[in-house]
């Protein structure tokens, strides 16, 4: 396993360091020619992202070469892309043409609907950084309760056949609860850049989690009687017009200074969500500061701690979209 992970990481680094080998400008050229919001990875032509001469092995890449693509020749790339669009080439035979799939952020070589670009692999159950399973606590609690229940039953029934059945049931119940507890479904999906510029979307609905519903008005929802009561809460983003529930960023820290001069430091989690339960004297001022010292300050003092109520995708009440990195 370590080999495969290492190879994946290594290929990723290679691809990032030297896109497309002999044709490093091609991803950007494809982006520009097709009007994409992203530069496609080398892997659409070079399987596994390993670039270089003679490594165009994917069907999409070969179809491009059949239409005149030459390594390092930008003009031939543009002509080949135009020919691909004209011919309606569908390399993976999923009914959508390669060019259409690229425009929708899909892999022209992949199974139907698979997003382009490989997301990082997350390891472990019950708490992966971005793809965190929830319900583990409930599962373990259920396991403990079942264990206690069956242990009591066993004691009551004494020895003999009854105790054997209880023990068997306890084993099955514990095993099942453990499986459920350990490996619940993940609640963050990797999505095309057209859906979320961050590439990650919260799909866990209203299940309780500090990762939940990034971008949505936290205090407004929590005031309905569920979840903790926050005085300040919001989501930090890399892009100013990111949609609701798309993952944010934790590449900076949010500072809030109350009218009494007391300052709170709010550290976003992996989904960009930040919050505080401490009281804050209104009106407050706020700023975002990155590790390298860059600062972005909010223009005016505010009296509403529910940041995402105004910092929506396009901004409300004069807010310029999301709370963003400096």
């Amino acid at each position: 396993m370590r080999v495969r992970v290492a190879m994946l990481m290594f290929f990723g680094v290679l691809a990032a360091a030297s896109p497309a080998g002999a044709s490093p400008a091609f991803p950007d050229a494809v982006r520009a020619r097709l009007g994409l919001s992203y530069a496609p990875p080398c892997a659409i032509c070079h399987e596994g992202g390993r670039g270089g001469a003679g490594t165009v092995t994917t069907r999409f890449g070969r179809a491009m070469m059949d239409r005149g693509l030459k390594g390092g020749d930008g003009a031939s790339l543009a002509a080949a892309l135009d020919a691909m669009a004209r011919d309606g080439v569908d390399s993976d035979h999923d009914g959508a043409s390669d060019v259409d799939e690229l425009r929708r952020g899909k892999d022209p070589n992949g199974a139907s609907g698979v997003a382009i670009g490989a997301p990082p692999i997350e390891y472990g159950c019950g708490g992966a950084t971005v793809a965190r399973a929830t319900g583990g606590g409930g599962g373990w609690l259920a396991a403990l309760l079942l264990a206690a229940h069956f242990t009591r039953r066993r004691r009551r029934s004494g020895t003999g056949r009854g105790s054997g059945r209880a023990r068997a049931a306890a084993i099955v119940a514990l095993g099942a609860a453990t499986l459920v507890a350990a490996c619940n479904p993940y609640e963050v999906s990797y999505v095309a850049p057209e859906v979320c510029q961050s590439g990650r979307l919260w799909t866990g609905g209203d299940s309780e989690s500090a990762d939940m519903n990034p971008g949505m008005a936290c205090i407004q929802c929590h005031s309905r009687g569920e979840g903790p009561t926050f005085t300040l809460a919001g989501t930090l983003y890399a892009a100013s017009d990111e949609k609701d529930r798309c993952a944010g960023s934790n590449a900076a820290v949010v500072y809030v200074q109350g009218a009494d001069g007391r300052t709170q430091k709010l550290v976003p989690n992996g989904m960009g969500n930040f919050s505080s339960k401490l009281s804050v004297a209104m009106p407050y001022t706020a700023w975002v500061q990155s590790a390298d010292g860059k600062v972005r300050r909010m223009a005016d003092p505010q009296s509403n701690g529910d940041c995402n109520a105004c910092h929506t995708q396009h901004g409300l009440n004069g807010a310029p979209g999301r709370v963003v990195l400096p």
Binding site: V5, N109, A118
Partner: peptide, 10 residues
Amino acid sequence: ALRDKATGVT
């Protein structure tokens, strides 16, 4: 697999 662990390709 939708994405192979080594290559990221279906």
